[in-house]
Design a protein around this nucleic acid. Structure first.
Length: 553
RNA sequence: AGGGGCGUAGCUCAGUGGUAGAGCAGCGGCCUUUUAAGCCGAAGGUCGUGGGUCCGAUCCCCACCGCCCCUACCA
């Protein structure tokens, strides 16, 4: 793209009607052609960018209200409508033409006839292109092929599109372009539109679910002075006035629990988290998380609630409790529950010999022995080993074995519970089994979807675990203990259960999408500008008026 | 980060060691019930970027850029 021609400061105000066009876009020939048509349209006396159009129906409403009317009824009733939309198909036939407008994602055919609209309007119509936005008024009728159509009597230009739409049959196939120019994707790819409408519906239903159960929706800081609430590498930013570094939050957890201390016994937040880590089919650096907390509750109650939530949500949004996801049919009418140890035993690879019993895994040194047996097999397979790095504790080994052996098999909705305490720094210890946290995760289609636990509310235990994290060091650990959080706990956090649900992954499941980018409107891509997909972006600036010395930044 | 794949007209894609093609879009013409409208005509390209091999590279080799997939990282 050509760089903008900069108006020197202090230059006289430009005349109101003069249109400065500093930017030009590919395809240049078509862009210039359309600008030429725009000029012609204006010189014919039409406003190019009128402020308003008084419509009576959207294309969708016309379909809903008159879609059932037969041809004879329509000609008898002579329903007058004014409707606006974008031209997405154009079939001129000399002195008459068909076109399709879209609005609300619905296509509506219009019929424009020279005899009917008159010379002037037909002249305007001939200067229109695919992508232009118009308003038409007239009555409804059915064509020979029985399609509900507007018999156009008046035509109004609402916006001349200066750039063409993508190819009408194949649409946008270049995924990079689809993400960088999502506006085009949404016009052209019906499925993309449906995904984001459904995403909105899912979030609406989630809010409804929690609202009607008395949870309060809150917003907590996105910028945190101390890292916390999860283990992840953060983005760092800077506040100038306070001269301080801040982290974009990796989780809202510690703030939400402060609110429970403050007497908001049931709270939830739906908002973004930011994690400075890898990008792949199920990870994006900013992603949306639902977190909710309820006082006087525990992890077991949360599992029940979660099951209800998912079953209701899926049924409402998809119309059935059994949905298709890729090759699988996911049945949300019943959830499996397995302890982490049971899951390891259940999916223990047969080639490794008989699976250990859960008792063996629980025994002191048991995870180490199981890992050694597993690793023999993994070495032969050339796959990853358990406990390969550092000197993991028994609990950490159980977590690794679970991920290596069981996680990918958890296709149907499955709760995994009894997490080792070592990998659960914010969860409450189980009274009867101190090596375990009262924690669960929900797995669906091999993805971790939710994570919930009984919250650690013993300030001394929490302080000890925070100090261990700080001592451990590394980019993922906080540099200092969050003293104020310990202070809040010292004022008393009631027995509380809390859970996080990854909204993006949930939307993936309910839209049968297999990449998180498909369910995020503007996923992060390198370079980050829509221009990067263009062939020439930096050079070819024909009018280089700016002397080098004048450039300032 | 490692491995694999891709990058050709505005879009969707063919193709070849001898400087390139189709459909759609755009342009000119014809066409008053079409729906991927049709017919006729003309135009459109630094074959991602930069090096190398070769008489000659869009094609072969190397590097870089971007995207995709797999693996790794990632509570």
């Amino acid at each position: 793209m050509n760089t903008p021609a900069i108006l020197p400061p202090g230059s006289p105000k430009r005349p109101a009607r003069e249109r400065i066009v500093p930017l030009e876009f590919e395809p240049l020939d078509q862009y210039l052609q359309r600008r030429k048509k725009l000029n012609e349209i204006e010189s014919l006396g039409h406003a190019a960018y009128p402020a308003k159009y008084d419509w009576t129906h959207t294309p969708k409403q016309i379909g809903e209200q008159f879609g059932q009317r037969r041809a004879e009824q329509l000609s008898a009733e002579r329903v007058e409508v004014r409707v606006a939309g974008r031209i997405v198909a154009l079939r001129p036939h000399g002195k008459a033409a068909f076109a399709h407008l879209t609005g609300d994602g619905v296509r509506l055919q219009i019929y424009v006839k020279l005899d009917v609209v008159g010379e002037a309007a037909y002249k305007l119509f001939q200067l229109l292109d695919l992508g232009d936005i118009i308003g038409v008024s007239g009555h409804l009728f059915r064509t020979k092929t029985n399609e509900l159509t507007v018999w156009v009597e008046k035509l109004t230009l609402l916006n001349k599109a200066l750039l063409p739409l993508p190819e009408k049959w194949h649409g946008l196939a270049d995924v990079e372009m689809r993400y960088r120019r999502r506006y085009l994707d949404l016009i052209v790819t019906e499925r993309a539109r449906e995904i984001f409408l459904r995403r909105a519906q899912i979030i609406r239903e989630l809010r409804r679910f929690f609202d009607e159960r008395g949870y309060v929706e809150v917003e907590t800081p996105m910028m945190h002075p101390i890292l916390g609430g999860a283990t992840a590498r953060p983005f760092v930013t800077r506040h100038n006035t306070f001269d301080m570094d801040l982290y974009l939050r990796i989780a809202p957890e510690l703030y939400l629990k402060r609110l429970v201390v403050g007497g908001l016994d049931r709270v939830y937040e739906i908002n973004r988290n930011f994690r400075n880590e890898g990008i792949d089919a199920i990870h994006q650096p900013e992603f949306t998380m639902l977190e909710f907390y309820q006082a006087y509750s525990d992890a077991g109650a949360l599992m029940d609630l979660t099951e209800t939530l998912f079953r209701e949500l899926v049924t409402t949004v998809c119309g059935t409790a059994a949905i298709t996801y890729g090759e699988a049919t996911l049945d949300f009418s019943r959830f499996t529950r397995l302890s982490m140890r049971e899951a390891i035993c259940k999916y223990w690879p047969a080639a490794t010999g008989p699976a250990p019993s859960t008792a063996e895994i629980v025994a002191r040194g048991g995870p180490r022995r199981a890992a050694e047996r597993y690793n023999e097999f993994a070495r032969a397979q050339g796959t990853d080993l358990a406990g390969e790095f550092g000197s993991p504790s028994d609990g950490e080994l159980v977590g690794e074995l679970f991920e290596l052996i069981a996680e990918k098999h958890l296709v149907q909705p499955t709760f995994i519970y009894d997490f080792p305490i070592e990998i659960s720094p914010l969860a409450k210890r189980r009274a009867d089994e101190p090596s375990l946290a009262d924690r669960f995760e929900l797995f669906i289609a091999g993805m971790e979807i939710a994570n919930g636990f009984s919250e650690l509310n013993d300030p001394a235990d929490q302080e000890r675990r925070f100090r261990e994290q700080v001592e451990k060091g590394g980019q993922e650990s906080p540099k200092e203990v969050d003293i104020d959080y310990i202070r809040a706990l010292s004022h008393g956090l009631p027995p509380t259960a809390g859970e996080g649900i990854g909204i993006d992954r949930l939307v993936m499941l309910l839209t049968n999408s297999h990449a998180i980018r498909e369910v995020i409107l503007f996923p992060l891509l390198r370079a980050g500008t829509a221009e990067a997909a263009d062939t020439d972006s930096s050079e070819a600036n024909g009018s280089d008026d700016t002397a080098p010395g004048q450039r300032s930044k």
